[in-house]
């Protein structure tokens, strides 16, 4: 199965991204994971998601490279190495135990339940007029969800501008006086 191979490639790239010393190489390896995810969406029959993931991944890489460029500092190795590693592996193991119990109740791979989506598929075309069902769900059936997404997006943009700004407004006024 090609999806298994692609997932193995993504896991390999993720291990490289986590373990490599150089920060810029780490960011590039994370880009490999994201672009592999875009291909995986294409294999899993989700073309809209593949396009969006491609664009978002490239923007994400640009932002992260802006953060890391010219700031390549050596990683620190000292500190409580044994305690940190043990605690981390304990938490990951705990997560995997819970995931093992949850995995048994999931639907079998390749056989979705589709209790809600049945109505969308049956009446999507006549109610919304869109042949693409993902577009009809995003822009018509669940349009409040999209409105919330736009709100979060613009709030985050305002947050970025407020954090990144060099001089606060009060200080700027004082300098002018």
């Amino acid at each position: 199965m090609e999806i298994n191979l692609l997932l193995l490639f993504m896991i390999f790239a993720a291990i490289v991204a986590v373990e490599i010393e150089d920060l810029l190489s780490s960011v590039i390896a994370m880009g490999a994971v994201g672009l592999g995810l875009s291909l995986a969406f294409l294999i899993l029959k989700a073309p809209d998601l593949a396009i969006t993931q491609l664009v978002v991944e490239i923007l994400c890489l640009i932002i992260l490279i802006r953060a890391t460029i010219n700031k390549d500092l050596p990683l620190v190795k000292d500190g409580r190495w044994l305690f940190n590693t043990t605690a981390t592996l304990t938490f990951v193991g705990l997560f995997l135990i819970f995931a093992y119990f949850a995995l048994k109740d999931l639907p079998q791979f390749g056989a979705p339940i589709m209790r809600v989506a049945k109505d969308y598929i049956a009446s999507g075309l006549e109610k919304t007029g869109a042949a693409n069902l993902v577009a009809s769900v995003v822009l018509d059936f669940r349009v409040y969800d999209t409105l919330g997404e736009a709100t979060v997006l613009f709030t985050a943009a305002i947050g970025v501008l407020a954090v990144i700004r060099k001089v606060g407004r009060i200080n700027a006024n004082k300098k002018n006086e």
């Binding site: 899993l44 029959k45 989700a46 809209d48 998601l49 969006t52 993931q53 978002v56 923007l59 994400c60 932002i63 992260l64 802006r66 953060a67 979705p112 589709m114 809600v116 989506a117 969308y120 598929i121 069902l133 993902v134 769900v137 995003v138 669940r142 969800d145 999209t146 919330g148 997404e149 979060v152 997006l153 709030t155 985050a156 943009a157 947050g159 970025v160 954090v163 990144i164």
Partner: peptide, 26 residues
């Protein structure tokens, strides 16, 4: 046909992920 509902919700989630990453990097 594959299930269109999770695809529509993940489309939202991807864009929000970009916004969150931009805020953390800032």
């Amino acid at each position: 046909i594959v299930d269109p509902l999770p695809q529509a919700l993940v489309l939202t989630s991807i864009v929000i992920g970009l916004a969150v990453t931009a805020l953390i990097v800032a």
